[in-house]
Structures are given as C-alpha cells and as structure tokens.
Amino acid sequence: MNSVLPQNIGIDISKASLDCHARPAGIGRQFANTKKGYAALIKWIAQWHVERIAYEATGVYHRAFEQALVGCPLVRINPERARRFAQATGTLAKTDTIDAAMLALMAEALKPAPRPERAQNLNQLAELVNARDGLVRDRTALKNREKNLTLPLLKRQAKQRLEQIARHIDAIDAMAQKIIQADPELVRKQEIIASISGVGILTAAQLIATMPELGSLENKQAASLAGLAPVARQSGQWKGKCFIRGGRANVRQALYMPALVAARFNPDLSAKYKQLIAAGKPAKVAITTVMRKLIVTANALIKADRVWVKSLP
C-alpha cells in the first residue's frame, strides 16, 4: 500500500555514505557517497512518487549530491533548524539513521518547497565563492600570526604564503568573471547590482553566486533569506530587542564592507544611517539596516530590470 503513497525522503549525507529513510513507507537504506551510490539511490527512489528529498547542507558533500540528483525535488535544510525540529519531537539521540528519519518527518510535516534547479554556471560560481572565502579567512589568520613572528625564516614563509593567497584570489576572481561574462543574464544582473552606490563588481559577483534568487523574490523574502530581517521577541507585555538570525551568512559577509561604504557615500543610505545613529541606535544596528536595504534594493532593481539612479536632492 505504501508503494503508491507519495513519499518524503530524508537523507543524511556524510563523506562515505548516504543514509536514507522513506516516509510513510518507513523503509531505510544506505548507499555509498559515490557515483555508483547515486545511481543506486536514484533507482531506489524511482519506485515511489517522491514529493521531497530533504537533506542538510554539508558543504562539498551536498554539492556533489545535488549535481547527481538534478531533476529531483530537493529540499536543503539548515542543520540547526533540523536539530531543533528533532528536539521538538523529543528525539535527543543523534545518529545518521535517526537524522535521516527526522529529515523525512520534517519534510512531511512542514512541507518546505523544493529548491529550484540551479544552472551549472551558478554552481561553479558558488564553488568559487566558497573557495575565495576560505582563502580570505586563511589570509586574515596568517596576518594575525605574522605580527608575532620573530624568526626571519617564518617571516619569509608567511610573506610567501600571503603572496600565494593573493595570486589564488586573483585567479578565482578572474574565473568568476569569465563565467559571468559568458551568460548575458548574469552580465545584466552584475551590471544592475554594481550600479548601486557602495557595491562593486566583486560584491555583485558574490551576490549572484550566493543568492541567485534575487529578482524573483518579494522584498521581505529577500531580507529574510539573507538573514537580515529583524526577528521580534515579545511575550505578553514584555518586549525584547529585535535581532537577526539564520539566513545565508555568506550573503551578509559579502554585504558588510559595501554597507560601510554605502553608509558614507550612498546619499540615500547615508541619510538613513545618520538618522539611526542620531536616534541612539548602535552602529551595528544601523549597519545591519544598511545591509538589509542594499539586498532589498538589489532585488527590486533586478526585478524591474533597471540600474540604480541617485535620488534627486
């Protein structure tokens, strides 16, 4: 009977294996996290009508999985959200098998919308941006260590490594631009985003890679997806401070420096920043507001297919 019912599949992805659970069939299987394993998995799920395939974001492992299952109704779940759901059901134990079952239950109960398929060039851009972020973190850590070095050998090695990181970052930026320039739609998106005062070509490329949905969202959705929409805290007559959480950290990371620039040189956003500071808001809150306005503006401009124009005084 269960073979004819729509199924929600939960998959826990690890380096070596894919632990799967079909619900309501209640059937679990494990497959190797290899090309042969993907082929066997696709054959296994073909026996049902599958509504969703839920899995957690796991970096390089989930990207290979997504590419192998193109055309399937994939739902990527934030690991923290998945863990909180499991705790809400009273499940405290954590194993790969339990996680797969919980993901299937979560998909069935909450019915998250499957992710739209991403083009191969966007997957490549996302991989480049992730690699670039890693190099930037390495550069920052090395610069911090460099301050405490005293031996000439170590200083020389640190300098050479920093030069190597700079070359690698330049190569990544060049390849990202090559990918963008090969697609007229991406060229136009980059042109629109980079037209916003405070945002440059590099940030535009990062936003295209990390938030390809820009232009297809409502403004509130764009802010929420980036994790820049304030979350209210209220109970009875008590009201706590609003805060941001969740969303895509890499989008916020890409927007932070442009927001600092926009707070000084973008006439519209500079006025808003100064207004918030004058009202006694902390600088961090004011900058977060500027970041939110940047992503909302980019979304609205792409949707309207027009570049940013400075407001008249």
Rank of each mutant, 00 (worst) to 15 (best):
M1G: 09
N2R: 03
I9W: 00
D12S: 07
S14H: 15
S17W: 08
C20A: 14
A22R: 04
P24Q: 01
G26L: 03
G26S: 03
G28C: 07
Q30I: 07
A32R: 14
T34I: 02
Y38T: 04
A40C: 06
I42N: 08
I45M: 15
A46R: 15
E56K: 04
A64M: 10
Q67V: 08
A68H: 02
G71L: 11
R81S: 15
R83G: 12
R84N: 15
A86H: 05
A88T: 10
K94R: 15
T95K: 11
A101D: 10
A107D: 02
L110W: 13
A113K: 14
Q120W: 04
N121V: 15
Q124A: 14
E127Y: 08
N130I: 01
A131L: 13
G134V: 03
N144H: 14
N148G: 13
P152L: 01
A158L: 00
K159E: 15
A171Y: 07
Q181R: 11
P184Q: 06
I193K: 00
I196S: 01
L202Q: 11
I208C: 03
T210H: 03
M211R: 02
E213V: 03
Q221D: 05
A223M: 04
L225C: 03
A229F: 06
P230I: 00
W238L: 06
K239Q: 14
N250R: 11
Q253P: 01
P258Q: 07
A259G: 02
A263M: 02
R264W: 05
P267D: 05
D268A: 14
A271V: 11
A283C: 05
V285H: 05
T289P: 01
M291P: 00
M291I: 08
L301G: 06
W308V: 12
L312W: 01
L312V: 13
